[in-house]
Design a protein around this nucleic acid. Structure first.
Lengths: 222, 222
DNA sequence: TATTGATTCAAACAGTTGTTTGAAATGGCT
DNA sequence: AGCCATTTCAAACAACTGTTTGAATCAATA
């Protein structure tokens, strides 16, 4: 067993790409093996069956992702506004990069929408830290003007907007003029989302200054 | 050929549910026929092949959806804020209803993420009008303070937040305390999203009043 | 009733799927 | 070289897929 174990390695890598591209069901072990340049039986020899190959490739995608893009670090005194923009930009960059560089992200997205065994692990190690970071920044920016539950809704909203620019691409390309749609790159979108979020925060502050306390965000009803 | 054409009807209905549940590839004509209580050959007899059954079931889901939930109408003079809240609530209600009532929505979501032939039709007849309505409301609320491109980004953001509360459910249920997650119902979420959007609009207005013109939303850079 | 056309049915078909098998090849070891 | 465990390979297997077929059934008409 070579340390770099060529076939096992290539199999994992290729499987991740094919699974990301076609989904678990539509991806065939034959295509994976052919693309990886290994024999058909290699999957069963090295991983037992297709499902375990899938799980392993998800885990590996997760692992590679964590190594490729280190947690962002800022010099002390960096304003929370800047940090927020950077985090949003990083999330978007990870989501929108070309598929041949970002099959890991796509594979993880698939997993998160149709959870299998690897999902909880993925959330614990990967999603939650990212999410807590956004929560912390929002907490700082809103300085205790809203409670934890609302903070979570706001954070989900930010993530949701980013996600939409990934998952909704087919539809958005039909709803947006081509020359504008061509500008939908991570930086452009991150600037917008961050700016929009900060505008909302300023709006809440203004409310607090002018009138009474800030609305709780749910009591309103119709 | 009966006007209600029992088998064809039941086939369409059942196919929609199964396709929504399992996706095109994983859904088998055998299961569809069995669940519908019709013979295996009925699919090919009535629809030609599996793919055309799929397309027809997507179209039908779209059609039923349109009939079930009529476009909202407001009395003259209803403030745009209220309309916005209602539209968001309607979108969320459509997305979050139980799967056995909402297989149409789930099927359409699948189609929009992995577009086939029916996608463009779906966007034209269903998504675009909804989207234009949101755009019009935002245009009214922001009263020409921002250009059309930014308006579109804001509208995408609203839709994206709604979508996330549907697609991201597995992850959110892991990131949210159960007693809070239980409150994630259409009205609760719509109140938050509408309120947050209005806060952002107020924030933009405040900026315009205080200082110079509003940021374009993209030029900022890092 | 006999005839006709549309519909249903059980059975089979051809192709693809994941998996298994047993022989061949590989590479390090004494 | 000879031996060994590990890995590769072509071939086959069994199960499942969408689709076709030809006879059986049904409903209406003349």
């Amino acid at each position: 067993m070579n340390e770099f174990d060529d076939t096992k390695h290539r199999l994992l890598e290729t499987a991740g790409m094919v699974f990301a591209e076609k989904g678990y069901r539509a991806a065939t072990v034959r295509e994976i093996c052919q693309r990886a340049g290994v024999n058909l039986a290699a999957v069963n020899y090295h991983f037992g069956d297709k499902q375990r190959l899938y799980i392993e490739s998800v885990k590996r995608a997760h692992f590679c992702r964590g190594q490729q893009i280190p947690r962002p670090e800022w010099p002390a005194g960096t304003p929370a506004e800047t940090k927020l923009r950077d985090v949003i930009g990083a999330v978007l960059a990870r989501m929108l990069s070309a598929p041949d560089q970002a099959w890991q992200g796509q594979l993880m997205l698939r997993e998160l929408q149709h959870p299998t065994a690897a999902c909880m692990e993925l959330v614990r190690d990967y999603m939650r830290p990212q999410f807590e970071l956004i929560m912390a920044l929002l907490r700082e920016l809103l300085s205790e003007q809203v409670d934890e539950n609302r903070l979570r809704l706001i954070a989900f909203g930010i993530v949701g907007q980013c996600l939409h620019f990934r998952l909704g691409r087919p539809v958005m390309s039909l709803l947006t003029p081509p020359e504008e749609y061509r500008r939908y790159q991570p930086d452009y979108l991150a600037d917008h989302i961050a700016d929009w979020t900060l505008a909302a925060i300023e709006g809440l502050r203004a409310r607090a200054d002018h009138g009474g306390p800030v609305a709780t965000g749910s009591g309103g009803g119709r």
